[in-house]
Amino acid sequence: MLEKNKEIILTGEEALEALKEIEFILISLHKMGSFYADKPGAVEEYRRITTDFIDNCEVTKRLARVRTIISHHFDDSIGDDDMDDMERHLLDLKFWKPASTEKTHSNTGKFSFSDGVIDQLTAKRDELLMVFTDQQEQTFLITFHKLISFHRLSSAGSKVCDMHEEKTSTLSQENVCIDPNEAITTYCFKSGNGETVLAVIASGYSVERI
């Protein structure tokens, strides 16, 4: 960990904003749990109410705001492993995923990466998770599957003008040994001046709005 990241300072206003969001979510979920605790026959209703609360009250956006309040105080300088301190610390997190994800491993070609910002990257053993915000300020979780390698040339918060795909690339040939029978794509994210800010080598990606 970088020396300057061993201690971060939040302003009182920032801390109160984060606490406000956490309190709203925590107490609301507690009230729902308490209300349905004595209604064992209403499990399906409890699940529906909880899901509606998460969706209608935009819980993911509230938590994303808390994450932003905390994370923007960290120095996101990239180390020799192409990760910053936050990405490295989150590397072993096991995120929820559907029981079967094979059908989501390929790119459907329907998502546009133009004019957005890469907010965060989290590398796992065989996946790369990207939090991406488009020009309409909608936030998406992009999961690159069967990750082979990635090379980041700019820090988190990089603006992306476009993304194009390459079936073969110098980057992939230099860094990994690829089975010629494996369907592998290099995803190159470009800035407004045409420079590559991120290159990801994977079998495909899936998109989820958060």
Rank of each mutant, 00 (worst) to 15 (best):
I22A: 15
A37Y: 11
S203C: 15
I142A: 03
A37G: 01
V197M: 02
V117A: 04
G157M: 02
E23P: 02
T101W: 05
Y187G: 04
E87S: 13
A99T: 13
R209T: 12
E166V: 08
I69E: 07
I8Y: 09
E3H: 08
G204V: 02
I49D: 12
M32C: 05
F111D: 00
R88V: 06
D80R: 03
G41M: 08
S155W: 00
S206Q: 02
Y205L: 14
E45I: 12
C188M: 13
D76S: 08
E13K: 11
P98W: 11
S191I: 05
E127G: 09
M86R: 06
E166W: 01
F132V: 05
L121N: 01
K110E: 04
L141M: 13
S100D: 09
D115A: 04
S154G: 00
K124A: 15
G33C: 08
Q135G: 00
S28T: 15
A199C: 08
N56P: 09
F24P: 04
E208I: 09
F95P: 13
L16V: 12
K94L: 12
D76N: 10
D55W: 14
T186F: 01
F53A: 11
K94S: 13
T11F: 11
F189Y: 13
L10C: 09
K20N: 13
T168M: 05
N175L: 10
T139Y: 01
V160K: 03
R47S: 07
L198A: 00
I201F: 04
C161L: 02
T143N: 07
D115R: 07
A15E: 10
L129R: 15
R125A: 14
N181F: 10
T186E: 05
F111I: 00
E58V: 12
V200T: 06
L2S: 04
G116L: 06
M83W: 01
H30W: 09
T196C: 10
H30K: 12
L2M: 06
F53Q: 09
S106C: 03
D76F: 05
T196G: 03
G116W: 02
D84A: 07
I49P: 02
I184E: 03
K39E: 03
N107F: 07
S206L: 01
I70Q: 10
L2Y: 05
L93P: 12
P180N: 07
E174K: 08
R152K: 12
Q173W: 01
I142P: 00
R152L: 03
L198T: 00
I118C: 03
V207W: 01
K31V: 09
C188T: 14
K20R: 14
S114H: 09
M163K: 05
I210N: 09
S154K: 04
L129A: 10
K110I: 02
V43L: 13
K4G: 03
K31P: 03
K124M: 15
N181S: 12
L93R: 15
Q135P: 00
I210K: 12
D134P: 03
S114G: 02
E17T: 12
K39Y: 08
F111S: 00
Q138G: 02
L121D: 02
